[in-house]
Write a protein that binds this DNA or RNA. Structure first.
Length: 487
RNA sequence: GGUCACGUCGUCUAGCGGUUAGGACUCUAGGUUUUCAUCCUAGCAAUCGCGGGUUCGAAUCCCGCCGUGAUCACCA
């Protein structure tokens, strides 16, 4: 069987981590079966429509590497893939239901329906529209809501690949709206039609839809459609409280994580582990690993809490294991090799040459937690730092040294470095000799040199720092500090 | 309230009748020729929601309870 899955987001302008997992699971399912991953835009809610939202969504998916085989932008045999462009499809299926006597026009205004609802609640009863079903509904026409007519009020049983065997009580079956007064279909109707027409084999979505399964099952039956395989994913819970992750809880959008220097690899890895494991103790997964190992039967049923600390840890893991060329691209943060307007590099890093940047990036790669750390870790490689003697005089290893002693140490170091081959190994040897000659501890001499050359809170190991900095620059900076100290 | 789910360290989880209940994140302490990061070692941390059963033996099977969540829109 050719597996076809889909991600069907609403363009509401905000893509958070939870939304992305709703894309990741079907993506993995499709890819591991050499199937097709479809992207469909569910834009039937005109009130929530946001103009740029679709573009943000597509950009986010591309950035993450979740490329779709079929859908908006790329097209495919079952288009259009935007629901507002598929009105006639829904109308066609709606007509079929009307002809069978399984759909009828709702003659009431929203206010009247609301009144029924309050009436039922006042009587401590659950509100069901079907209890107020009009006896002689008018003939349906555009402008009136069209409702589904439940004819078999019964308990429904169904299977879910993650949640197991489930059931829906008869009380959940109601005459829900198929076509809204504005002529557009509801999600409840549109997704059933689209999934069928697009030959979706595995329907993935959040567990919140389980409550509506009774209605969907009745609709499949009325439409004489074989339902797809159901895959309901547990929620991602907010860091605090007991609610599912959402914008209101301060959940950051994927764009924000990107801006903060998180990598797609880390985000995807983090998401797949939230509610899934491969049964081993492995916790680093590339997208290819996930495709190979992902298995619905090992997905948790309980919601998993979002823990940003873990995301940060994974980001560090990926920052360190990523190929330097790939990392270089992420640091540039633009598809255009000449465009550094949006890059993570600092003021001086941006105007350096690619060769220089690459060299520096390689030196600091191990120390990065996010790409946003780049300026603090690299700027002193590109431009001489501001001299701040207190960093030396108040350093815990150097505080006991008199300025004259520090000057002497620098002087000896400079003369030794002047005759050293400029590579990390040779520098390491020179520095070791220097320790013996000056009878200082590594913490003392190395701290002095490191600070004098960088004035940064942290930097790579000293030989490497000096090697990348270059001989002339190193010596010139040391001399300048020495002169300042001597005054 | 009705309906449907879920319940192992703080967090993510392994576990599918016999384990000192394992791993990872976080945190703490120590180690590596400086800082920071990495890496290594050790440690803290779950009476497996509670109570009954079944069994020689239960986190694992059964029942009840409790707690938590989702949903009850002309939103998806």
């Amino acid at each position: 069987m050719n597996i076809r899955t889909r991600f069907a987001p609403s363009p509401t302008g905000y893509v958070h981590i939870g939304n992305i997992r709703a894309a990741l699971f079907p993506y993995l399912l499709a890819k591991q079966n050499h199937g097709t991953f479809v992207l469909r835009i569910e834009d039937t809610d005109q009130n929530r429509y946001v103009a740029d939202a679709e573009q943000v969504l597509l950009d986010t998916l591309k950035w993450l590497g979740l490329n779709w085989d079929e859908g908006v932008e790329v097209g495919g045999p079952f288009g259009p893939y935007r629901q507002t462009e598929r009105r006639e499809h829904y109308l066609k299926w709606a007509q079929k239901l009307i002809d069978k006597g399984l759909a009828y026009a709702d003659p009431y205004t929203p206010e009247q329906v609301q009144q029924f609802r309050e009436e039922a609640q006042a009587n401590k009863q659950a509100f069901l529209y079907r209890n107020y079903r009009p006896e002689n509904p008018p003939e349906w026409h555009l402008g009136l809501p069209l409702r589904f007519k439940q004819t078999k009020i019964e308990r429904k049983h169904f299977h879910d690949e993650i949640m197991g065997d489930l059931e829906a009580g008869a009380e959940t079956l109601d005459d829900f709206v198929l076509i809204k007064a504005d002529g557009l279909p509801t999600y409840n109707f549109a997704h059933v039609v689209d999934d069928f027409e697009m030959e979706i084999t595995h329907l993935t979505r959040g567990v919140e839809y389980i409550s509506s399964m009774g209605n969907y099952l009745a609709l499949y039956e009325a439409l004489e459609i074989t339902p797809p395989v159901f895959v309901h994913m547990p929620h991602i819970m907010a860091p605090t409280g007991n609610k599912k992750l959402g914008k209101r809880d301060g959940a950051k959008s994927v764009q924000e994580y990107r801006a903060e220097g998180f990598l797609p690899e880390a985000i995807l890895n983090f998401l797949v582990m939230l509610g899934w494991n491969d049964g081993t103790t492995t916790d680093i997964f590339s997208l290819d690993d996930m495709i190979a190992k992902f298995d619905l039967t090992r997905v948790q049923r309980a919601g998993a809490r979002f823990d940003e600390k873990r995301l940060l840890w994974l980001n560090g893991q990926w920052l360190r294991r990523l190929d330097i060329a790939k990392l270089f691209e992420y640091a540039r943060n633009s598809a255009n090799p000449a465009d550094y307007s949006n890059s993570f590099w600092g003021e001086h890093g941006r105007i350096a040459s690619d060769e220089r940047r690459l060299e520096v990036l390689a030196a600091v790669q191990e120390r990065l937690k996010t790409l946003a750390d780049l300026p603090a870790l690299t700027e002193y490689f590109f431009a001489a730092p501001q001299i701040d003697l207190t960093q030396i005089t108040e350093n815990k290893f150097l505080a006991s040294f008199a300025p004259a002693k520090l000057v002497e140490l620098l002087e000896i170091a400079i003369s030794a470095l002047e005759t050293t081959d400029w590579n990390a190994d040779a520098l390491q040897n020179t520095l070791n000799d220097l320790l013996a000659r000056t009878a200082t501890k590594p913490a003392e001499l190395f701290s002095l040199l490191r600070i004098a050359v960088s004035f940064a809170p942290f930097s790579p190991e000293l030989p490497r720092t000096l090697a990348v900095l270059g001989k002339d620059e190193t010596i010139s900076r040391l001399k300048k500090v020495m002169d300042t100290l001597a005054k």
